[in-house]
Simulated assay, not measured.
Amino acid sequence: MAPKVSLVVSDLSEGGSVRAFLLAQVLQKLDYQVEIVGFLFGQDLYVIPPSGIPVISVTGKNYPNFFGSARKLLQKLDGDIIYAVKPKPASFGLSLIKKMSNNRPLLLDMDDWELSWHGGFDWKYRPTPIQLYRDICKKNGALRFPNHPLYVSWLENLVKKADAITIDTQFLQDRFGGVYVPNGKDTIMFDPSLYDPEVSRKRYGLSEYRILMFPGAPRPHKGVEDVLIALDLLNQPDLRLVLVGSNPYDDYDDKLIEKWGRWIIKLPKKPVAIMPEVVSAAHVLVVPQRDTIIAQAQFPLKLTDGMAMAKPVLSTRVGDIPEILGDTGYLVDPGCPEQIAEQIQLIFEDLEAANKRGQRARDRCIKYYSVDAMACTLSQIIAEIKV
Protein backbone atom coordinates (compact mmCIF):
# COMPACT_ATOMS: atom_id res chain seq x y z
CA MET A 1 0.00 0.00 0.00
CA ALA A 2 1.23 3.49 -0.84
CA PRO A 3 2.54 5.56 2.08
CA LYS A 4 0.14 8.06 3.59
CA VAL A 5 0.93 11.76 3.89
CA SER A 6 -0.94 13.87 6.45
CA LEU A 7 -0.94 17.56 5.58
CA VAL A 8 -1.47 19.62 8.74
CA VAL A 9 -3.21 22.99 8.42
CA SER A 10 -3.41 25.49 11.29
CA ASP A 11 -6.79 26.92 10.23
CA LEU A 12 -8.90 25.49 7.43
CA SER A 13 -11.07 28.61 7.48
CA GLU A 14 -8.15 30.80 6.34
CA GLY A 15 -6.22 31.17 3.11
CA GLY A 16 -3.35 28.88 4.09
CA SER A 17 -5.44 25.88 3.13
CA VAL A 18 -5.12 26.78 -0.57
CA ARG A 19 -1.46 25.73 -0.69
CA ALA A 20 -2.29 22.59 1.32
CA PHE A 21 -4.84 21.43 -1.24
CA LEU A 22 -2.36 22.11 -4.05
CA LEU A 23 0.30 20.02 -2.31
CA ALA A 24 -2.29 17.29 -1.77
CA GLN A 25 -3.01 17.17 -5.50
CA VAL A 26 0.70 16.88 -6.25
CA LEU A 27 1.15 14.08 -3.73
CA GLN A 28 -1.80 12.21 -5.19
CA LYS A 29 -0.15 12.47 -8.58
CA LEU A 30 2.87 10.77 -6.99
CA ASP A 31 0.53 7.95 -5.83
CA TYR A 32 0.65 8.76 -2.13
CA GLN A 33 -2.42 8.44 0.04
CA VAL A 34 -3.25 11.93 1.19
CA GLU A 35 -5.36 13.55 3.88
CA ILE A 36 -5.75 17.11 5.10
CA VAL A 37 -5.93 17.41 8.88
CA GLY A 38 -6.53 20.78 10.48
CA PHE A 39 -8.34 23.05 12.86
CA LEU A 40 -11.43 25.01 11.95
CA PHE A 41 -11.49 28.26 13.89
CA GLY A 42 -14.15 29.80 11.62
CA GLN A 43 -17.50 28.47 10.47
CA ASP A 44 -16.59 27.24 6.98
CA LEU A 45 -13.70 26.00 4.90
CA TYR A 46 -11.87 28.84 3.14
CA VAL A 47 -11.85 26.95 -0.15
CA ILE A 48 -13.92 24.09 -1.44
CA PRO A 49 -11.47 21.17 -1.65
CA PRO A 50 -10.80 19.27 -4.88
CA SER A 51 -12.70 16.02 -5.14
CA GLY A 52 -10.97 12.95 -3.78
CA ILE A 53 -9.03 14.73 -1.03
CA PRO A 54 -10.31 13.79 2.45
CA VAL A 55 -10.46 16.63 4.95
CA ILE A 56 -10.49 15.95 8.69
CA SER A 57 -11.29 18.99 10.80
CA VAL A 58 -11.16 19.60 14.53
CA THR A 59 -12.90 22.60 16.07
CA GLY A 60 -10.23 25.12 16.99
CA LYS A 61 -10.35 26.76 20.41
CA ASN A 62 -8.22 29.28 22.25
CA TYR A 63 -6.01 28.43 25.22
CA PRO A 64 -6.48 26.69 27.57
CA ASN A 65 -9.14 24.73 25.65
CA PHE A 66 -6.77 24.46 22.70
CA PHE A 67 -4.90 21.71 24.50
CA GLY A 68 -7.98 19.48 24.24
CA SER A 69 -8.40 20.33 20.56
CA ALA A 70 -4.73 19.60 19.96
CA ARG A 71 -5.03 16.20 21.61
CA LYS A 72 -7.91 15.32 19.29
CA LEU A 73 -5.96 16.38 16.23
CA LEU A 74 -2.86 14.44 17.25
CA GLN A 75 -5.01 11.30 17.60
CA LYS A 76 -6.23 11.73 14.03
CA LEU A 77 -2.75 12.39 12.65
CA ASP A 78 -1.69 8.96 11.42
CA GLY A 79 0.22 9.58 8.20
CA ASP A 80 3.51 7.81 7.49
CA ILE A 81 4.83 11.27 6.61
CA ILE A 82 3.74 14.50 8.31
CA TYR A 83 3.71 17.65 6.17
CA ALA A 84 3.08 20.84 8.15
CA VAL A 85 1.78 23.87 6.26
CA LYS A 86 3.17 27.11 7.77
CA PRO A 87 5.38 27.36 10.88
CA LYS A 88 2.47 27.92 13.24
CA PRO A 89 1.85 26.21 16.61
CA ALA A 90 -1.41 24.67 15.34
CA SER A 91 0.38 23.05 12.38
CA PHE A 92 4.17 22.85 12.71
CA GLY A 93 4.13 22.84 16.51
CA LEU A 94 1.87 19.81 16.72
CA SER A 95 3.72 18.16 13.85
CA LEU A 96 6.97 18.47 15.81
CA ILE A 97 5.29 16.69 18.73
CA LYS A 98 4.21 13.90 16.37
CA LYS A 99 7.69 13.65 14.92
CA MET A 100 9.26 13.32 18.36
CA SER A 101 6.66 10.94 19.79
CA ASN A 102 6.22 8.64 16.79
CA ASN A 103 9.45 9.19 14.86
CA ARG A 104 7.58 10.26 11.72
CA PRO A 105 9.42 12.11 8.93
CA LEU A 106 8.40 15.77 8.98
CA LEU A 107 8.26 18.26 6.12
CA LEU A 108 7.47 21.93 6.57
CA ASP A 109 5.99 24.10 3.83
CA MET A 110 6.23 27.89 3.94
CA ASP A 111 4.31 29.84 1.32
CA ASP A 112 4.60 33.27 2.90
CA TRP A 113 6.33 34.94 5.84
CA GLU A 114 3.89 34.78 8.72
CA LEU A 115 5.37 37.70 10.63
CA SER A 116 4.99 39.94 7.59
CA TRP A 117 1.29 40.16 8.48
CA HIS A 118 2.26 41.76 11.79
CA GLY A 119 4.89 44.27 10.71
CA GLY A 120 7.70 41.98 9.57
CA PHE A 121 11.14 43.04 10.73
CA ASP A 122 9.64 45.78 12.91
CA TRP A 123 7.40 43.44 14.91
CA LYS A 124 8.22 43.10 18.58
CA TYR A 125 6.21 41.86 21.52
CA ARG A 126 7.18 44.02 24.47
CA PRO A 127 4.13 44.30 26.72
CA THR A 128 3.95 46.10 30.00
CA PRO A 129 3.37 43.81 32.99
CA ILE A 130 -0.29 44.85 33.01
CA GLN A 131 -0.68 44.14 29.29
CA LEU A 132 1.04 40.76 29.66
CA TYR A 133 -1.40 39.87 32.42
CA ARG A 134 -4.34 40.88 30.24
CA ASP A 135 -3.02 38.98 27.21
CA ILE A 136 -2.68 35.82 29.27
CA CYS A 137 -5.55 35.97 31.72
CA LYS A 138 -8.43 37.79 30.05
CA LYS A 139 -10.91 35.58 28.21
CA ASN A 140 -10.05 37.12 24.84
CA GLY A 141 -6.44 37.91 25.68
CA ALA A 142 -4.11 37.98 22.67
CA LEU A 143 -1.82 35.23 23.97
CA ARG A 144 -4.76 32.86 24.27
CA PHE A 145 -4.85 32.65 20.47
CA PRO A 146 -2.83 29.54 19.50
CA ASN A 147 -1.19 31.17 16.48
CA HIS A 148 -0.23 34.49 18.07
CA PRO A 149 2.82 35.98 16.30
CA LEU A 150 4.91 35.56 19.46
CA TYR A 151 4.46 31.80 19.24
CA VAL A 152 5.08 31.88 15.48
CA SER A 153 8.36 33.74 16.09
CA TRP A 154 9.44 31.00 18.49
CA LEU A 155 8.62 28.30 15.96
CA GLU A 156 10.50 30.09 13.20
CA ASN A 157 13.60 29.36 15.27
CA LEU A 158 12.79 25.64 15.04
CA VAL A 159 12.23 25.27 11.29
CA LYS A 160 15.53 23.39 10.96
CA LYS A 161 14.01 20.63 13.09
CA ALA A 162 11.98 19.60 10.02
CA ASP A 163 13.54 16.90 7.85
CA ALA A 164 12.96 19.11 4.81
CA ILE A 165 11.57 22.56 4.09
CA THR A 166 9.70 23.59 0.95
CA ILE A 167 9.25 27.26 0.03
CA ASP A 168 7.76 29.11 -2.93
CA THR A 169 9.67 32.42 -3.16
CA GLN A 170 13.23 33.65 -3.24
CA PHE A 171 12.48 35.83 -0.20
CA LEU A 172 11.64 32.76 1.89
CA GLN A 173 14.61 30.79 0.59
CA ASP A 174 16.98 33.61 1.51
CA ARG A 175 15.50 33.78 5.00
CA PHE A 176 14.85 30.11 5.85
CA GLY A 177 16.59 27.98 3.22
CA GLY A 178 14.67 25.06 1.84
CA VAL A 179 13.84 23.74 -1.62
CA TYR A 180 11.97 25.89 -4.11
CA VAL A 181 8.56 24.36 -4.91
CA PRO A 182 6.56 27.10 -6.65
CA ASN A 183 2.79 27.19 -6.80
CA GLY A 184 1.93 25.06 -9.78
CA LYS A 185 -1.31 24.61 -11.64
CA ASP A 186 -3.06 21.54 -12.96
CA THR A 187 -2.60 22.50 -16.60
CA ILE A 188 -4.74 19.57 -17.72
CA MET A 189 -7.67 20.86 -15.70
CA PHE A 190 -6.80 24.48 -16.54
CA ASP A 191 -6.82 23.95 -20.31
CA PRO A 192 -8.27 26.83 -22.34
CA SER A 193 -9.11 24.54 -25.26
CA LEU A 194 -11.85 22.95 -23.13
CA TYR A 195 -13.80 26.19 -22.77
CA ASP A 196 -15.44 28.78 -24.98
CA PRO A 197 -14.89 32.21 -23.39
CA GLU A 198 -18.10 33.60 -24.88
CA VAL A 199 -20.12 30.73 -23.43
CA SER A 200 -18.46 31.25 -20.04
CA ARG A 201 -19.16 34.98 -20.11
CA LYS A 202 -22.78 34.31 -20.93
CA ARG A 203 -23.11 31.79 -18.11
CA TYR A 204 -21.87 34.30 -15.52
CA GLY A 205 -23.73 37.30 -16.91
CA LEU A 206 -20.62 39.00 -18.28
CA SER A 207 -21.32 39.02 -22.03
CA GLU A 208 -21.78 42.76 -22.41
CA TYR A 209 -18.49 43.69 -20.74
CA ARG A 210 -14.74 43.63 -21.29
CA ILE A 211 -13.62 41.65 -18.27
CA LEU A 212 -10.66 42.20 -16.01
CA MET A 213 -10.60 39.42 -13.44
CA PHE A 214 -9.03 38.97 -10.04
CA PRO A 215 -9.96 35.36 -9.19
CA GLY A 216 -9.57 35.59 -5.45
CA ALA A 217 -10.29 37.47 -2.25
CA PRO A 218 -9.06 41.08 -2.31
CA ARG A 219 -6.84 42.35 0.48
CA PRO A 220 -4.98 45.68 0.70
CA HIS A 221 -1.56 44.31 -0.34
CA LYS A 222 -3.06 42.74 -3.47
CA GLY A 223 -3.55 46.14 -5.09
CA VAL A 224 -7.11 45.72 -6.32
CA GLU A 225 -7.71 49.37 -5.44
CA ASP A 226 -5.10 50.39 -8.02
CA VAL A 227 -7.05 48.60 -10.76
CA LEU A 228 -10.25 50.34 -9.68
CA ILE A 229 -8.53 53.74 -9.73
CA ALA A 230 -7.27 52.87 -13.22
CA LEU A 231 -10.85 52.15 -14.28
CA ASP A 232 -11.85 55.56 -12.94
CA LEU A 233 -9.09 57.10 -15.06
CA LEU A 234 -10.17 55.22 -18.20
CA ASN A 235 -13.88 55.78 -17.51
CA GLN A 236 -14.95 53.31 -20.21
CA PRO A 237 -18.43 52.02 -19.31
CA ASP A 238 -18.03 48.49 -20.69
CA LEU A 239 -15.01 47.63 -18.50
CA ARG A 240 -15.60 45.59 -15.35
CA LEU A 241 -13.43 44.07 -12.64
CA VAL A 242 -14.71 40.64 -11.61
CA LEU A 243 -13.82 39.42 -8.12
CA VAL A 244 -14.24 35.71 -7.41
CA GLY A 245 -14.74 34.76 -3.79
CA SER A 246 -14.74 36.99 -0.73
CA ASN A 247 -12.37 38.07 1.98
CA PRO A 248 -13.09 36.11 5.19
CA TYR A 249 -10.99 38.36 7.41
CA ASP A 250 -12.81 41.72 7.44
CA ASP A 251 -15.17 44.01 5.50
CA TYR A 252 -12.59 45.14 2.93
CA ASP A 253 -14.72 43.81 0.04
CA ASP A 254 -17.68 45.91 1.18
CA LYS A 255 -15.53 49.03 1.34
CA LEU A 256 -14.35 48.47 -2.24
CA ILE A 257 -17.92 48.00 -3.46
CA GLU A 258 -19.10 51.07 -1.54
CA LYS A 259 -16.52 53.25 -3.29
CA TRP A 260 -16.16 51.58 -6.70
CA GLY A 261 -19.30 49.49 -7.06
CA ARG A 262 -19.91 50.74 -10.60
CA TRP A 263 -16.85 48.80 -11.81
CA ILE A 264 -17.15 45.64 -9.70
CA ILE A 265 -18.93 42.37 -10.38
CA LYS A 266 -18.60 39.90 -7.55
CA LEU A 267 -18.96 36.15 -8.03
CA PRO A 268 -19.18 33.71 -5.11
CA LYS A 269 -16.28 31.38 -4.39
CA LYS A 270 -16.18 28.32 -6.63
CA PRO A 271 -14.79 24.79 -6.32
CA VAL A 272 -11.37 24.31 -7.88
CA ALA A 273 -12.87 22.23 -10.68
CA ILE A 274 -15.11 25.15 -11.72
CA MET A 275 -12.39 27.81 -11.68
CA PRO A 276 -11.06 27.10 -15.22
CA GLU A 277 -14.49 27.88 -16.64
CA VAL A 278 -14.68 31.07 -14.55
CA VAL A 279 -11.21 32.22 -15.60
CA SER A 280 -12.01 31.49 -19.24
CA ALA A 281 -14.60 34.28 -19.05
CA ALA A 282 -11.86 36.89 -18.47
CA HIS A 283 -10.24 38.97 -21.17
CA VAL A 284 -7.38 39.90 -18.84
CA LEU A 285 -6.18 38.53 -15.48
CA VAL A 286 -4.99 41.24 -13.09
CA VAL A 287 -2.58 40.55 -10.22
CA PRO A 288 -1.63 44.08 -9.12
CA GLN A 289 0.43 43.32 -6.00
CA ARG A 290 1.67 46.31 -4.01
CA ASP A 291 5.28 46.49 -2.86
CA THR A 292 4.83 45.37 0.74
CA ILE A 293 6.76 42.83 2.76
CA ILE A 294 3.68 40.60 2.62
CA ALA A 295 3.64 40.61 -1.19
CA GLN A 296 7.41 40.20 -1.51
CA ALA A 297 7.21 36.93 0.41
CA GLN A 298 4.33 35.50 -1.64
CA PHE A 299 3.92 33.62 -4.89
CA PRO A 300 0.51 34.87 -6.10
CA LEU A 301 -1.57 31.83 -7.03
CA LYS A 302 -3.63 33.98 -9.39
CA LEU A 303 -0.66 34.32 -11.75
CA THR A 304 -0.79 30.66 -12.70
CA ASP A 305 -4.59 30.79 -13.02
CA GLY A 306 -4.15 33.27 -15.86
CA MET A 307 -1.00 31.72 -17.32
CA ALA A 308 -2.48 28.22 -17.49
CA MET A 309 -5.62 29.55 -19.19
CA ALA A 310 -3.53 31.46 -21.76
CA LYS A 311 -4.86 34.83 -20.63
CA PRO A 312 -3.00 38.13 -20.86
CA VAL A 313 -1.72 38.69 -17.32
CA LEU A 314 -1.27 42.23 -16.01
CA SER A 315 0.83 42.37 -12.86
CA THR A 316 3.44 44.39 -10.99
CA ARG A 317 7.20 44.31 -10.47
CA VAL A 318 7.08 42.91 -6.95
CA GLY A 319 8.97 39.96 -5.47
CA ASP A 320 9.26 36.98 -7.82
CA ILE A 321 6.53 38.12 -10.23
CA PRO A 322 8.87 39.33 -13.02
CA GLU A 323 10.73 36.00 -12.90
CA ILE A 324 7.50 33.98 -12.90
CA LEU A 325 6.00 35.78 -15.91
CA GLY A 326 9.24 36.27 -17.84
CA ASP A 327 8.39 38.04 -21.08
CA THR A 328 4.88 36.58 -21.23
CA GLY A 329 2.99 39.14 -19.15
CA TYR A 330 2.38 42.87 -18.84
CA LEU A 331 4.29 44.44 -15.95
CA VAL A 332 3.87 47.84 -14.30
CA ASP A 333 5.39 49.47 -11.25
CA PRO A 334 3.53 48.73 -8.00
CA GLY A 335 1.07 51.33 -6.78
CA CYS A 336 0.80 53.03 -10.18
CA PRO A 337 -2.83 53.12 -11.38
CA GLU A 338 -1.82 55.36 -14.30
CA GLN A 339 0.47 52.63 -15.67
CA ILE A 340 -2.26 50.03 -15.13
CA ALA A 341 -4.67 52.19 -17.13
CA GLU A 342 -2.12 52.52 -19.95
CA GLN A 343 -1.57 48.76 -20.11
CA ILE A 344 -5.30 48.00 -20.08
CA GLN A 345 -5.71 50.39 -23.00
CA LEU A 346 -2.75 48.78 -24.81
CA ILE A 347 -4.06 45.25 -24.31
CA PHE A 348 -7.52 45.99 -25.67
CA GLU A 349 -6.16 47.96 -28.62
CA ASP A 350 -4.64 44.71 -29.89
CA LEU A 351 -6.30 41.86 -28.04
CA GLU A 352 -5.15 39.32 -30.62
CA ALA A 353 -1.48 40.11 -29.86
CA ALA A 354 -2.24 40.02 -26.13
CA ASN A 355 -3.81 36.58 -26.48
CA LYS A 356 -0.72 35.33 -28.31
CA ARG A 357 1.34 36.51 -25.37
CA GLY A 358 -1.10 34.66 -23.13
CA GLN A 359 -0.44 31.46 -25.06
CA ARG A 360 3.28 31.89 -24.42
CA ALA A 361 2.40 32.30 -20.76
CA ARG A 362 0.63 28.93 -20.81
CA ASP A 363 3.68 27.31 -22.41
CA ARG A 364 5.85 28.79 -19.65
CA CYS A 365 3.39 27.63 -16.99
CA ILE A 366 3.47 24.05 -18.29
CA LYS A 367 7.28 24.03 -18.28
CA TYR A 368 7.98 25.65 -14.92
CA TYR A 369 4.78 26.07 -12.91
CA SER A 370 2.67 22.98 -13.48
CA VAL A 371 1.63 20.29 -11.04
CA ASP A 372 3.95 17.96 -12.96
CA ALA A 373 6.90 20.30 -12.35
CA MET A 374 6.02 20.43 -8.64
CA ALA A 375 5.70 16.64 -8.50
CA CYS A 376 9.17 16.14 -9.94
CA THR A 377 10.76 18.26 -7.22
CA LEU A 378 8.62 16.96 -4.36
CA SER A 379 9.30 13.32 -5.22
CA GLN A 380 13.03 13.94 -4.90
CA ILE A 381 12.60 15.68 -1.53
CA ILE A 382 10.52 12.83 -0.07
CA ALA A 383 12.88 10.19 -1.45
CA GLU A 384 15.75 11.82 0.43
CA ILE A 385 13.99 12.03 3.80
CA LYS A 386 12.63 8.47 3.70
CA VAL A 387 15.87 6.89 4.90
Rank of each mutant, 00 (worst) to 15 (best):
G184R: 07
V279F: 14
K161A: 04
P192N: 14
A90W: 03
V279E: 00
V332H: 03
V159T: 05
K86H: 15
D350V: 07
T187G: 03
V332I: 01
S10P: 04
I167C: 09
I324H: 01
D191M: 15
L132W: 01
E338A: 05
G141E: 09
V224W: 04
Q173T: 10
A308T: 10
P288Y: 10
V26C: 00
W117R: 09
L73M: 13
R201H: 08
N62I: 06
F39H: 09
E258H: 08
Q75N: 13
Y63R: 02
L303K: 10
K88E: 15
I188Q: 13
G38I: 02
N235L: 11
I344E: 09
F171K: 00
E277Y: 13
K185G: 09
L206V: 13
Y133K: 13
T128E: 09
V179Y: 08
Y195L: 12
K98V: 12
V85L: 13
P3K: 04
R364T: 11
Y369I: 01
F39C: 12
D350F: 08
G16I: 00
A341H: 02
R219M: 07
R201K: 15
R219P: 05
C336V: 03
E156N: 08
P300I: 12
F67Y: 14
S280T: 12
A297W: 11
L74K: 05
K4V: 11
G223F: 10
Y83R: 15
N62K: 13
I264W: 03
Y46D: 12
I48P: 03
V242C: 02
I274W: 06
M307A: 05
Q33D: 13
L239M: 07
L40P: 04
F66S: 00
D226K: 11
M189E: 01
S370Y: 13
